[in-house]
């Protein structure tokens, strides 16, 4: 089973690295959205420091949303997806492998770009570390939940817009606690640990249920 998982993971990453622009588009989308805010709301240090955590997290939500549409689309178009469903392997496992690959390519880069964004918003070093940690725990949840939506809207006209309508409300808990952790870390006495416990719990739950739900959704969409 682990071999199958590794196989799909390796395949998806190789495919994505052959078309590097897709990965870079997501990353630059994130950077552009984050850079637009100071132009829109003004560049006072204090205000930016307050807005920073929320803006970064909303941008992360949108960036992960943007890439989701492609999660199953290519495999669906060339028939690979149907072949995957016909193999004896549990579909949820294959889906999980695809989700992990998707996160490595779109979520993880956001974690590493976060310090740059933190500097744009004058966040302290401590807050930047917290932001990286919260993105590292939070973005996998986004990929996991998003996979359900991507599977449901597979092959539909205007699927991208519909996908965001369906999935963005479900992202709220991650947004609340992800940006909450960063915001709270700027206050001296406050404790960020509860935020990470909660995000961790969400991640575990999502790991457990999201692949199953996505697999069910794929069956509905492809049959």
């Amino acid at each position: 089973m682990l071999k199958v998982f590794g196989c799909i993971l390796g395949r998806d990453i190789t495919l994505a690295l052959r078309r590097r622009t897709d990965v870079l588009t997501t990353l630059f989308f994130f950077i552009i959205v984050v850079s637009l805010f100071p132009l829109g709301v003004g560049s006072e240090r204090e205000m930016l420091r307050e807005l920073g955590p929320g803006v970064v997290w909303v941008a992360a939500l949108l960036a992960s949303m943007l890439a989701l549409e492609r999660l199953f689309a290519a495999d669906f178009d060339d028939g690979t997806l149907e072949q995957m469903m016909l193999t004896g392997q549990p579909l949820a496992l294959l889906v999980l492998a695809k989700i992990v690959a998707h996160w490595l390519l779109t979520g993880l880069p956001l974690v590493f770009i976060a310090p740059l964004v933190g500097m744009q918003y004058h966040l302290s070093d401590g807050a930047i570390w917290i932001m990286m940690a919260s993105l590292a725990v939070g973005t996998p949840i986004l990929s996991l939940l998003g996979a359900i939506g991507a599977a449901l809207t597979l092959g539909l006209r205007g699927g991208g817009i519909l996908l965001s309508l369906l999935i963005l409300p479900l992202y709220i808990p991650v947004l609340v606690y992800g940006s909450g952790a960063v915001a709270v870390s700027m206050i001296e006495i406050a404790d960020t640990q509860p935020y990470f416990y909660l995000l961790g719990a969400f991640l575990l739950l999502a790991l457990l249920f999201a692949p199953l739900a996505s697999a069910a959704a794929l069956r509905i969409s492809v049959e």
Partner: peptide
């Protein structure tokens, strides 16, 4: 329930 709870209690402290 998770969404409602997160909105209700944005600060777990």
């Amino acid at each position: 329930p998770i969404i409602f709870w997160s909105i209700n209690c944005p600060d777990p402290n």
